[in-house]
Write a protein that binds this DNA or RNA. Structure first.
Lengths: 197, 197
DNA sequence: TCAATTCTGTAGTGGTCGCTAAATAATGGC
DNA sequence: GCCATTATTTAGCGACCACTACAGAATTGA
């Protein structure tokens, strides 16, 4: 994205990747407004000017952390094989990831930025778009399953995609509330009963 | 709860109920951290000392607003009749309430206080308990349905209750993201396909 | 009318917010 | 060695945070 010519000048004294990982965890656990720059300083060991020099602003830092989360902890539908198995695996992987020990509970995207102060509504647009893309991805997968005969014609793929998306979002809420991995897996299992036929 | 002897002294110049309603909407839309006392002053037309005199603190005001929301906008399972219809009505009522025009989208409880700053984790305990009680209520209703023969013995009522709870929580997320009432109703409809048998 | 009581508005409190100017430190190019 | 460039540290910016001391206003009981 940005071209670096780091040969000149004083070199960075920190591992940008490790810092971004710590930032991601802080935002993941405490949200955008619940994470202050002082919190990020404590989590990374850096001072504010270093953070701003490397990442620009708190909002840009949040968005960068979001991208990192999507790449490293995100869940996507397996594009091949039966759609039913793909969705089932998707839900089970979410159940496992949302209850990973050593990481904050829940999902950094599914339940992110749902209530923000009026002055910073823009922060919510990227998480919202990511959720919307997840729904669209599920719907597209189901649509293909209909054309391939795996699902009956006339299936309301939009509503079904919203259902599985809601299951993931609800799992994130319940993980934050302390639900165990076993409980989330049970939730994922009974959700598959909504699969047509 | 509190005994009033309002005969003496200068009387209140505002309608406590109307003020609490405005406060509730502000917290509902912007969350606890996203709503400042200045925001509440603007929403109510009162000055801070009046708010503090009547309600104590921002946190107490939030909890009072939560109780008001539960009473006036909350959804409960109808205790009589078939459990299946009760759950179906429950989901449909949530779909309608979360997309009520003139009110903030989504639910003030289902997706509340999921990420707070470390210093005010206590604010989240009451919404979390309310969600937990909702899950327990669904589970109890399903358990009764099992003993009455409406659901097969061996039904995982815990997982099934978590599923319907997750559907409500996911509907709240999607309502905030702009889902229409029709879309939420479709979601509720396909969710009922997960009902055993 | 006076005193006691309660509420309202003014005007702040100390603290934290996101952010940054300026000085110092560490590198490469010459 | 010396300069240009970049990073880190110190120190602090104005704005906002939740909250409140205080004085004035409005009521009841006497």
């Amino acid at each position: 994205m940005e071209m670096r010519k780091p040969s000149r000048g004083r070199p960075r004294s920190f591992d940008e990747d490790a810092v971004l990982d710590a930032v991601m965890r802080a935002f993941w656990e405490h949200g955008y407004e619940g994470t202050s720059v002082a919190t990020l300083e404590a989590a990374t060991g850096l001072k504010a000017p270093s953070l701003y020099g490397a990442f620009g602003s708190k909002e840009l830092l949040y968005q960068t952390a979001l991208e990192r989360y999507a790449c490293e902890h995100g869940t996507v539908l397996r594009p091949d094989g039966p759609a039913r198995e793909a969705v089932s695996e998707f839900l089970n992987e979410a159940a496992d990831r949302f209850s990973e020990s050593g990481l904050p509970p829940g999902c950094m995207v599914s339940t992110a930025a749902l209530a923000l102060g009026a002055t910073q509504r823009g922060v919510a647009t990227r998480p919202a778009r990511m959720r919307s893309e997840t729904l669209a991805g599920i719907e597209q997968r189901l649509r293909t399953a209909v054309t391939e005969g795996e699902l009956p014609t006339g299936t309301d793929v939009g509503a079904l995609a919203r259902l599985f998306g809601a299951v993931v979002q609800g799992m994130s809420v319940q993980a934050i509330d302390g639900a165990t991995r076993q409980e989330l897996r049970g939730l994922a299992a009974v959700a598959m009963a909504a699969w047509p036929q």
